[in-house]
Design a protein around this nucleic acid. Structure first.
Lengths: 108, 108
DNA sequence: CAAACACATGAGCATGTATTCATATATCGG
DNA sequence: CCGATATATGAATACATGCTCATGTGTTTG
């Protein structure tokens, strides 16, 4: 069972990954640490917006920032999360059929 | 790489799991199909709110609804998602240390 | 058919949040 | 120290979203 507290905690992480730009930011740091400027350039986001998102991701420990001189590089400290994301990104590239209707179950 | 479209699609799914009540609803359907009333009772949510959330989860194909007489039972049609969630729920019960600061990397 | 039950849906509100613009902080080169 | 570069932060705003209340739809039973 999932307690309300754990649902809030886990939900907070999913909520952060629920924004497309934030998800792209995290994804861009999956294979190697990325500087803020490189992330912003790669994803075509303003440095300010990128930094705002990075702050949220850092607060939730989804990303970890390491300063090297003027630049700060971000990467995923949690290998469990990294694996989950790698997995889901791979999964989302597969085709799937569409059916959102309520189906009828056969009689018992 | 993760395209913007795929980020939107995957992000949409994470966004839905990002609400604690919705996450609890999905989690409650992990082991066996659950009727709307049972979900609402178990999680102490109003039937209306439960149904609103179920509609969103159904639209995103995170849950599938099957009618049996007056009741509608919901469960997870995607075993990939089920496994991911089972995994993350298990993970969130483990302890973890707290460090959201920017750390200093050693000189090159 | 009518009443009861289970669920779905629409409107409305209060709150949260993604983005932008302006500004501040930190680090390095000269 | 000064300017330039890189990142962070604060305020303001337009928009999204969770929730409730009221009502509608579908299904079984009398």
């Amino acid at each position: 069972m999932l307690t309300a507290d754990h649902a809030t905690e886990l939900g907070e992480m999913f909520r952060l990954l629920g924004d497309p730009n934030r998800l792209r930011i995290v994804a861009s740091c999956l294979s190697q640490p990325m500087s803020v400027g490189d992330i912003a350039d790669t994803l075509d986001l303003s440095p300010s917006l990128t930094s705002h998102h990075l702050r949220l991701l850092r607060s939730a420990r989804l990303l970890k920032g390491t300063r090297h001189g003027k630049q700060v590089f971000y990467d995923l400290p949690d290998c469990h999360v990294r694996q989950m994301l790698t997995n889901m990104i791979e999964h989302v590239t597969e085709p799937h059929d569409v059916d959102e209707a309520i189906t009828e179950g056969e009689d018992p």
